[in-house]
Design a protein around this nucleic acid. Structure first.
Lengths: 253, 253
DNA sequence: GACCGATTCAAACAATTGTTCGATTTTGCA
DNA sequence: TGCAAAATCGAACAATTGTTTGAATCGGTC
């Protein structure tokens, strides 16, 4: 797979039982199921969201899910990719643009972090393509323990993730590959768990409460997020004075 | 609740249906159930581990779980607290000792991080009280989405966690409380997810592969972990050059 | 050896899950 | 209006879940 292909992924549509709705009244069934699924997925995750809970929430018959979507997994795959395809396209698009333009010489890492997270903040404000619950949804998706969800995300967005790993590796040449992998792993796990947790997410967005415009608010969130994450990525290992302090603890235990 | 009480928590034993085993042969049933539960919990978590899977793994009758432990939740509560009570006692004991001795002036944060994680590394080497799967177990426990597990951990170890939050707050007086909470939240979520993930855990312990003693290995793991986490905790917000770089990304999107 | 509590066992319980079936209703077009 | 496809519906399916039951077995003591 060529590098150029990676930069413009295509996201083939998942095959679902496709029938054209006769009118808007009928189509509302599929729409209501999708909305209910998303709402309940945010709160309970994949395994703990039953089809009966979904159909009750949507006010449709139980059999409607299998009729319109085939199976529970196909339904959730559609809900997940509807949201996340857009996000990942935006992410890579922004990365492409910045690579073409050239990064800031000293704050490359901060810019890469902003590139990763800004699209999510933007979509959270776009009611059409995301909505205010988009961050909750994102956290749930990446923290969900169901193998079906994990496999879907890993396979479908592997190329996009690789792009960012490569970009970080170029920005941090002095960091060993193992250390970089570990730290990026930490970073993404932390972000996912935090977005999924109600209080932590409020904590994060609360930091930007004083801002008075959407752009300022995004900037404020990133101003708290980026230095903190960049600081972790840039930290040097094997500083002798730190080593000594750590060994003092070991000697004590 | 006084501060002195917090430093030496007592962990009242959970009430389970208690009967003295007649001999070692009979007692093996409870022991085998506990071992099987732990093994399967590490792999599948609370919800996805069925009692039938446990009793099959243990080679005992299905009804044995309810007979000996009362319910699935009581069984898991016992398994969790058996491991984590020890860990948290060790953690607070070490914190007490270091607070009495006095921290290193410049590397307090590194020492606090070492204090948090060293007991886990130690227990992972103690076959009696932990074992080599202890880190997996720890990650699973803190990443498990079941409300039963989350509530148990949050309630039972709230006092111990508060001790560390206070200690970090003293070591980082210039950091706003909100920022500190967010960063500690990040840190613990990241650690949990990483320990629960097979590849990430190997990555972490693999960093210490060159060491030739247990103490050196713990030191090596912490030498990679502490600077990285300390770097994230110590990072300053609102550095103007970073702000500028971030705004450049915003302008581009 | 007989008794009695502790333990084990097979079996069934009630509840929940995703899925499917067949009949019924609705819809759009001739 | 009539027809065929699409959509909805109630009902049941088979599988899995945690839990309970009552009889059978074991183990130590009188």
């Amino acid at each position: 797979m060529s590098f150029a292909m990676l930069s413009t992924p295509s996201f083939p549509a998942l095959k679902i039982r496709e029938r054209e709705p006769r009118n808007e009244g009928r189509a509302a069934t599929k729409t209501r199921i999708l909305a209910a699924t998303e709402k309940l997925f945010i709160v309970h995750g994949f395994d703990a969201t039953s089809l009966r809970a979904i159909t009750t929430e949507a006010g449709v018959n139980l059999a409607a899910v299998n009729y319109h979507f085939g199976s529970k997994e196909e339904l959730f795959a559609l809900v997940l990719t509807n949201r996340l395809d857009t996000l990942n396209l935006e992410r890579v698009r922004l990365l492409d643009a910045l690579e073409a333009k050239g990064f800031d010489a000293v704050n490359t890492v901060e810019q890469l972090i902003a590139t990763m997270f800004l699209p999510a903040l933007r979509l959270a404000r776009n009611a059409e393509r995301g909505g205010e619950d988009f961050l909750k949804f994102l956290g749930r998706a990446y923290a969900d323990p169901a193998t079906f969800v994990r496999d879907l995300l890993q396979e479908r967005y592997a190329a996009q993730n690789a792009r960012f790993v490569q970009a970080f590796a170029r920005a941090l040449p002095e960091l060993a590959t193992q250390d970089l992998s570990m730290r990026l792993h930490f970073m993404l796990d932390a972000i996912s768990s935090t977005l999924a947790s109600e209080d932590a997410r409020k904590l994060m967005t609360g930091l930007a409460a004083t801002s008075n415009s959407a752009v300022d608010e995004d900037a404020a969130v990133l101003a708290h997020l980026a230095p903190f994450l960049a600081g972790s990525l840039r930290a040097k290992v094997n500083q002798s004075s730190q080593q000594e302090a750590i060994r003092a603890v070991l000697a004590f235990a």
